[in-house]
């Protein structure tokens, strides 16, 4: 049975305040959209609780995130830069108009070399999370999967990031019941 060896639930939208309180030095954070910031911070907390250095390469780790609003929160910001009569498309906003950018940001920060993927679903589903995360274990050499629900839309932050490990001695069983309990 795969086990959740660490998790972080983030519902507070004061992302910059959390970043500062963690005393992280990663200037790229400020350029990220809110979805990336939320996924980044929750992942940071998971790796911290595991005592892992973000800079140590992680060849045995895959990454699977899901949400329901995709990158709509940032897409709406971008839309304000392409209005008729005020058409100055922002490249910095445009690069975040894809939901899977959050997986890239987290993978770069934490040197995750396993496969990364992002799925859009109508609502949070522990069952779907299990199916997608367990599929990621099929990757060569993958022993653990950083996975979760990374939803951010209109100031509502709804994030749960978990580290799920194969054959871990300790942790919560990676079951629907346990996921729903920590969500």
């Amino acid at each position: 049975m795969n086990k959740i060896t660490s998790y972080y639930r983030l519902k507070d939208n004061r992302l910059t305040e959390l970043y500062r309180s963690l005393e992280i030095s990663y200037p790229k954070f400020f350029k990220m959209d809110r979805l990336c910031k939320a996924g980044f911070l929750a992942s940071e907390m998971v790796f911290r609780s595991l005592g892992e250095d973000p800079q140590s390469p992680k060849h045995d780790t895959a990454l699977v995130f899901m949400n329901s609003s995709s990158s709509l929160d940032n897409d709406m910001d971008y839309q304000t830069t392409i209005l008729p009569g005020n058409y100055y498309p922002s490249p910095a906003l445009f690069v975040y108009t894809l939901a899977n950018i959050v997986t890239g940001e987290v993978a770069i920060r934490n040197k995750i070399f396993g496969e990364t993927s992002f799925y859009i679903s109508s609502e949070f589903s522990a069952k779907e999370l299990i199916i997608t995360a367990e599929g990621a274990f099929d990757g060569k050499g993958i022993r653990r999967v950083l996975c979760g629900w990374t939803e951010y839309f209109k100031d509502a932050c709804d994030v749960l990031v978990m580290m799920v490990e194969k054959d871990a001695a300790e942790g919560l069983d990676f079951t629907e019941k346990n996921i729903n309990q920590i969500y």
């Binding site: 350029k31 100055y88 498309p89 922002s90 490249p91 910095a92 690069v95």
Partner: peptide, 13 residues
């Protein structure tokens, strides 16, 4: 490079 594009937009805007 994204910053460079943003500076180009800044100059125009």
């Amino acid at each position: 490079s994204i910053d460079a594009l943003e500076l180009i937009v800044l100059m125009e805007k």
